[in-house]
């Protein structure tokens, strides 16, 4: 059966993101019942029409779901893996008709591009990169950046994905000694790339020339920060970080996200705002995602919390559905949905 979901409620379509209005609209259930690891949304051309599809990732399968009617999805295709499990989907901005996935155990071992053609009913899988890959990010213009460890150093590579899913062009960025934890594009600056390192530094590259422009120490208040968003304004660089290792030490509560400002010219930085859990909310950050001005995080308590980054406070709290806690949460890249996954293979669409 291709339809494995439940229609929860009937609410009108809304294209503007407003977390206060988030409602559970449907549930996608992977029939295999295996553990969910990730979810994403992308455009896919099916029978000549570009559809906003949902991609679900289980340990050994990636599935493509097409919208049927309001709040219903039909599973169109699944790619199966037998040897190496799926670690994450790598969202590619502005790209349709392909999914990028990272496979591995503790570390990423392979990055593959998955293709499926609805007209020819054919599929293809292309191995894009392999090695000991620590961090990966899909960039605009069909580019993918990854950092991998070789015997003697770390390599930072940009691959441009061709129409057939293979690599069209490869470029190396100037390497750094520290392990890179996450990458982030700088909004509005197509040639700038940020990286966060395990030594609490933020590095800036010029993507066009491969130059390493700056290494900025952001302090040891929060270890192992993950960069979710970066933008440049009036000569300053604003960066939204999350803190998986943060403890409850602020008077205002447990910090989950933080906005910091960096002056790239002087390599000086300072905190602008902490996004904490509301008073009385237990738990801390497990996993999260930022889109536009909204941040969403799964907490250890099993709740999803949403912050308006401009207002500076938490605007919605979504309790787990059923007795299963959330495992991950992602904003949809194709519309105003929030996608939340549970370990049992269920994906909930808000």
């Amino acid at each position: 059966h291709s339809i494995e979901q439940t229609e929860i409620t009937d609410v009108p379509t809304c294209d503007t993101l407003n977390p206060g209005n988030l409602q559970l609209v449907s549930k996608l259930k992977n029939p295999s019942g295996s553990c969910s690891v990730d979810v994403s949304a992308t455009w896919w051309e099916i029978a000549g029409v570009k559809e906003p599809c949902i991609i679900t990732a289980c340990e050994y399968a990636i599935s493509l779901w097409k919208p049927l009617d309001i709040w219903q999805w039909e599973k169109m295709y699944s790619w199966h893996f037998t040897e190496v499990p799926v670690l994450q989907i790598v969202p590619m901005p502005d790209v349709c008709n392909l999914v990028c996935v990272a496979l591995g155990n503790l570390e990423i071992r392979e990055i593959r591009v998955l293709l499926w053609f609805s007209d020819a009913k054919s599929e293809n899988q292309v191995l894009l990169s392999s090695g000991n890959i620590q961090a990966v990010l899909g960039l605009t213009k069909r580019r993918l950046v990854s950092s991998s460890r070789t015997l003697c150093d770390q390599q930072v590579e940009i691959v441009t994905i061709a129409e057939d899913g293979g690599s069209k062009e490869k470029q190396f960025l100037m390497p750094i000694e520290e392990t890179i934890q996450t990458f982030a594009e700088v909004q509005g600056m197509q040639e700038a790339l940020l990286g966060t390192t395990i030594m609490n530094n933020i590095v800036i590259w010029n993507l066009k020339t491969g130059q390493l422009l700056r290494k900025i120490y952001i302090g040891d208040a929060y270890q192992a920060s993950i960069c979710h968003k970066a933008y440049s304004e009036m000569g300053l660089l604003f960066v939204v970080l999350s803190h998986p290792c943060a403890k409850e030490k602020e008077p205002s509560g447990s910090p989950v996200f933080q906005l910091i400002v960096i002056n790239p010219k002087t390599a000086l930085s300072m905190g602008v705002m902490l996004y904490c859990l509301p008073q009385g909310q237990a738990g801390r950050f497990l996993e999260g995602d930022v889109k536009d001005n909204f941040a969403a995080a799964v907490l250890t308590s099993g709740t999803i919390a949403i912050w308006d980054l401009l207002l500076g406070h938490c605007t919605a709290l979504l309790p787990p559905v059923s007795d299963q806690n959330w495992s991950f949460v992602k904003w949809s890249g194709t519309d105003s949905h929030l996608l939340a996954g549970q370990k049992d293979g269920s994906i909930f669409v808000y």
Binding site: M174, M189, E191, A192, I204, N206, T209, Q211, L212, L213, R214, S232, M234, G235, L236, L237, V261, I262, N263, P264, K265, T266, L268, S269, M270, G271, V272
Partner: peptide, 23 residues
């Protein structure tokens, strides 16, 4: 936050750092 603590700001920081950095 106090902007003065961040030192002199340049709107063209990306171009300036690119011209100063190693090729």
């Amino acid at each position: 936050c106090n902007q003065a603590d961040l030192g002199p700001i340049s709107i063209n920081w990306f171009e300036e750092l690119s011209s100063e950095a190693l090729p």
